[in-house]
């Protein structure tokens, strides 16, 4: 019969997957900081340090990866994090509404920001890069202005009730944020969407060639709007997590996530041009980022060096992604 191939381990196939580069990157930085950081990096506290950072970044990197696979960018995640956290803090901390309602309000605000991003992008045909950059600034200004108007401060305290705290803001085993569990669940969900549903196929097709995707009948604009709603909601979720964890939300929180999420996604093998990427790769990219940015504290060196390493990693990742892409094009498997 035609089309029957053994699912036998094939090193050549593995080499052609962009995740392979991401895997090597993760292993290299982990080994490096295990040696340089020694025992404190490799014990439970060390793992918690970088996994906590990875989980918050990862919750945003996953939906951002979907957006990038579909050929768009989202630069508004930073102020959306603040919007989610501050909304929850104002609703439940300042106005004393029960925290579950505050959480829902925060997430809804994030979803709304994503929806507005998406609608503007598909209606105006402007590059998502510009539109989301604009909303990043506009939302920051809006949250800052409203927060000062309502509460008179730029940092609002909130005491999450037990249920909300247990889900979003507890340290498991004294070290590990519950965000790690949320990240894992979200990763499974996104992987399912991407690999197992038709929507995954649509996302790849939209990133591959939007005009052809439209011609085959895919509701391209609807999918793109939903992807932005997804990243808006996930960003607000991180804001809620931070507010629950630290019992307060700041207007300025989250700005670093804008570029960090893109670094994580690109280091994870997602092509900047869209059309290709995987959840495994994005998880590895996120871990690599977190290991470098936290591992540096265990080495006793100035933490500024972490940015140098991350910048270098990003450059290497983009170059290897291009190489893997070429390898993928150089005719597939050998006969035999």
């Amino acid at each position: 019969m035609a089309g029957q191939t053994k699912s036998r381990f094939d090193f050549g196939t593995l080499l052609r997957r962009p995740e392979f580069g991401a895997l090597i990157g993760t292993i290299v930085v982990f080994v490096f900081f295990s040696v340089a950081g020694g025992e404190p990096f490799t014990d439970l506290g060390g793992w918690a340090a970088w996994l906590n950072v990875a989980s918050e970044l990862g919750i945003i990197a996953l939906p951002v990866a979907l957006i990038m696979i579909a050929g768009d960018l989202d630069l508004s995640v930073g102020s959306t994090i603040a919007a989610g956290g501050v909304t929850m803090a104002v609703v439940s901390g300042f106005f004393d509404v029960p925290t579950p309602i505050g959480v829902v309000a925060g997430l809804a605000f994030g979803a709304l920001i994503g929806f507005i991003n998406g609608i503007i992008i598909v209606r105006t045909n402007l590059p998502s890069f510009v539109v989301t950059l604009a909303t990043q600034f506009a939302v920051f200004g809006l949250v800052l202005g409203l927060c000062k108007l309502i509460t008179g401060t730029v940092a609002v305290n909130v005491k999450a009730d037990e249920g909300v705290k247990a889900i979003f803001g507890t340290l498991l085993f004294g070290n590990f944020e519950t965000a790690i569990v949320i990240w894992a669940v979200l990763a499974l969900l996104v992987a399912w969407i991407l690999i197992k549903t038709k929507y995954g196929n649509w996302i790849y097709a939209i990133g591959g060639d939007m005009v052809s995707a439209k011609a085959t009948g895919i509701p391209v604009n609807k999918v793109r709007v939903w992807l932005f709603v997804g990243s808006g909601t996930a960003s607000a979720l991180v804001g809620v997590i931070q507010a629950s964890l630290y019992d307060s939300a700041q207007v300025s929180g989250g700005a670093s996530f804008v570029f960090n999420s893109i670094i994580a996604v690109v280091v994870g093998g997602v092509l900047l041009t869209g059309g290709y990427g995987s959840v495994v790769g994005v998880i590895l990219g996120t871990m690599t980022f977190a290991i470098v940015s936290q591992g540096i504290f265990f080495t006793g060196w100035d933490s500024d060096w972490a940015s140098l390493i991350l910048g270098g990693l990003l450059l290497v990742a983009v170059l290897t992604n291009n190489t893997f892409r070429r390898l993928a094009f150089s005719s597939g498997k050998k006969k035999g």
């Binding site: 790849y204 097709a205 591959g208 060639d209 052809s212 995707a213 085959t216 059309g275 290709y276 094009f329």
Partner: peptide, 19 residues
């Protein structure tokens, strides 16, 4: 084939995915 980075099977069924 207009989706160079998709597999043969996936691109064949873009928009009409069998489930």
């Amino acid at each position: 084939g207009t989706f160079p980075l998709m597999t043969i099977g996936r691109s064949f069924f873009v928009g009409v995915e069998p489930t």
